[in-house]
Nucleic acid binder design. Structure first.
Length: 310
DNA sequence: ACCCAGGCATTGG
DNA sequence: CCAATGCATGGG
């Protein structure tokens, strides 16, 4: 029996819902979607473990007095399900992030203070799980973002959690068990290389062997997380740092080795002059302990076309 | 046609 | 320990 429940959540101010929910995903012209942002509504299929629910999120507040209202549709949803879904949405959309200390800290930074003003209230979005962050990062290694999106959609379409709600097909990211048994030959059909197919399968198997997937990482310090992540085949510094930022919401992750980030910093701070990773790492400490936020805002500036060069 | 893109592991010096 | 290389594919 398809039911609909609603929940309201109060993000930490300032919170710009359109900037935050509308930024990361624009999979237009797809016959399916994992998430969408249309006419002020953020729509996404949530995997609650034993069941799924379609969440439709809208802003019912303002940037400085934010409130989000979630309408949840699924089969036989209980109040407990709605509670879990509300927490998941709050997590995914970074509702708990208090930006003020970061804003204060970059007040003297001529570049970031301007970017922060332009994207006032933009929160960093997150993945639903550590496993998802790892697989997405591996898929995105060394290929253009447009290509990465195509590959990601193929993977989701073939191995993802699927549900038909309100007369339409919706997908959520594949669970580890689905990818742990995937044949490398089949993954190759999804435009993944042999190498990446092996990485992804290995990561899925490692997730299954760990009692709680990789979710125990939430309790470990940054350095310990990095060590464990890098021990996985296919995961290096860049990927591990992205896990800190995207899956664990650590405030001070920094994806050293990221080409676009390096060029963005070079463009904004060094007049376009090339810098290497070591120089970038040293430079990045001016943003500690908020480097995750700094990174998110630098990429926002990049996407908005504020940086010269590709 | 060619080159590169939000890396990583492997190999050869 | 460092540099070069294969990987896969779409867009400029």
């Amino acid at each position: 029996m398809e039911t609909t429940l609603t929940r309201a959540i109060k993000p930490a101010a300032p919170y710009d819902f359109e900037l935050t929910a509308g930024q990361p995903n624009y999979s237009r012209d797809q016959e399916f979607k994992t998430e969408d942002y249309i006419d002020g509504s953020y729509i996404r299929l949530l995997d609650l473990g034993d069941k799924v629910a379609l969440a439709r999120v809208e802003s019912t507040g303002s940037v400085d007095d934010p409130e989000l209202t979630i309408a949840l549709t699924g089969d036989d949803l209980s109040d407990g399900d709605a509670e879990r879904a509300g927490r998941q949405i709050a997590w995914l959309l970074g509702c708990d992030q208090n930006l003020r200390p970061f804003y204060d800290a970059v007040g003297d930074d001529p570049v970031l203070s301007e970017v922060v003003e332009q994207f006032y209230g933009y929160h960093n979005t997150r993945t639903a799980s550590v496993f998802e962050a790892l697989v997405q990062a591996v898929m995105g290694q060394q290929i253009a973002t447009a290509v990465a999106r195509i590959v990601r959609n193929l993977l989701i379409q073939n191995y993802g959690v699927r549900a038909s709600i309100e007369g339409r097909e919706w997908y959520a990211f594949p669970r580890a068990d689905a990818l742990a048994t995937a044949e490398v030959g089949d993954l190759r059909q999804l435009k993944l290389s042999v190498r990446k197919s092996e990485y992804i399968r290995g990561i899925a198997q490692a997730a299954l062997e760990s009692p709680d997937g990789f979710e125990g990482m939430h309790d470990l310090p940054d350095e310990e997380v990095i060590n464990r992540m890098v021990a996985l085949r296919g995961v290096g510094q860049w990927t591990a740092q992205w896990v800190l930022v995207r899956a664990l919401a650590r405030p001070d992750g920094f994806p050293i080795g990221d080409l676009a980030l390096r060029r963005t910093v070079a463009g904004l701070y060094f007049d376009g002059a090339e810098i290497n990773d070591a120089e970038l790492l040293e430079f990045s400490h001016r943003w500690s302990p908020w480097r995750s936020y700094a990174t998110a805002y630098l990429f926002a500036a990049l996407r908005a076309g504020r940086v010269a060069g590709s």
